[in-house]
Amino acid sequence: MTETETSQQTPAQAVTGMVDHTLELAATWLNWDGTLAHVDDRVYTPHKAIRRVADHLIDHLAEMEARLAGEEPQPDHWHASMVTTEADLAPFTQADLDEARSRLGRLARIWANRLDALTAEQLDHSPGEGWTFRELALHLKGSTYYADSVGDLS
């Protein structure tokens, strides 16, 4: 995608595009041989990439909803990328891909529906402390990092 196309994306398209990219790569992870992907100071696997994308979507969705309700967002307590769990090391199967498609697809729709319901004013002058909701969507777009860390295993 060119820089112009990226700048013309709606916030909802930024989030759904990130999920689409993640799931396109995940479709190649059925070939994963158990080799850990060492990126920066972390280790990534297919399961960990899916977990991190889902956690990131949930974390910022909870933040946005709390701010819209006039509440203080609850801090997250994820272990994030620092921890690789036993479950992260499991083979990535067709059933795992199906689950990821359902989970991430539904989260992307929730985000898209919420973002599309906000006015430009709400997107750019969001209540509470932190990034605007437009900036949050663009931040989430960067969650492709997790999937890109595992890469295309075709």
Rank of each mutant, 00 (worst) to 15 (best):
M1T: 11
M1Q: 11
E3V: 13
E3Y: 10
T4P: 00
T6C: 08
S7A: 06
Q9L: 15
Q9R: 11
Q9F: 12
P11D: 03
A12N: 04
A12L: 09
Q13R: 00
A14P: 01
A14F: 01
V15I: 01
T16A: 15
V19D: 00
H21F: 05
L23S: 01
E24D: 15
A26D: 03
A27V: 07
A27E: 12
T28G: 10
N31F: 05
N31E: 09
D33H: 07
A37G: 09
A37Y: 09
H38V: 12
Y44C: 01
Y44Q: 03
T45A: 07
H47P: 05
H47N: 02
A49Q: 05
A49W: 02
I50M: 14
R51P: 01
R52N: 07
A54Y: 10
A54D: 14
D55P: 03
I58R: 14
I58H: 15
H60Y: 13
H60T: 01
L61V: 01
A62I: 08
A62V: 10
A62W: 13
E63Q: 08
E65V: 06
E65M: 04
A66R: 09
A66T: 12
L68N: 09
L68T: 12
L68F: 06
L68S: 07
A69S: 11
A69G: 03
E71F: 08
P73A: 05
P75E: 13
D76L: 06
D76S: 12
W78F: 12
H79S: 09
A80E: 15
A80C: 08
M82R: 02
V83S: 03
T85G: 03
T85Y: 15
D88I: 09
L89W: 01
A90H: 11
A90T: 06
Q94N: 09
Q94T: 14
D96Y: 00
D98F: 02
D98R: 04
D98A: 12
E99L: 12
A100Y: 09
R103W: 06
L104F: 01
R106Q: 08
L107K: 07
R109K: 03
R109A: 02
R109V: 01
W111G: 01
R114S: 14
D116K: 02
A120L: 10
E121C: 07
H125T: 10
P127A: 01
G128R: 08
E129I: 08
E129G: 09
E129P: 07
G130H: 08
G130Y: 07
F133E: 10
R134F: 00
R134T: 02
L136V: 15
L136T: 15
L138P: 02
H139M: 04
L140A: 05
G142P: 04
T144H: 06
Y146D: 04
D148T: 04
V150R: 02
G151A: 04
D152V: 00
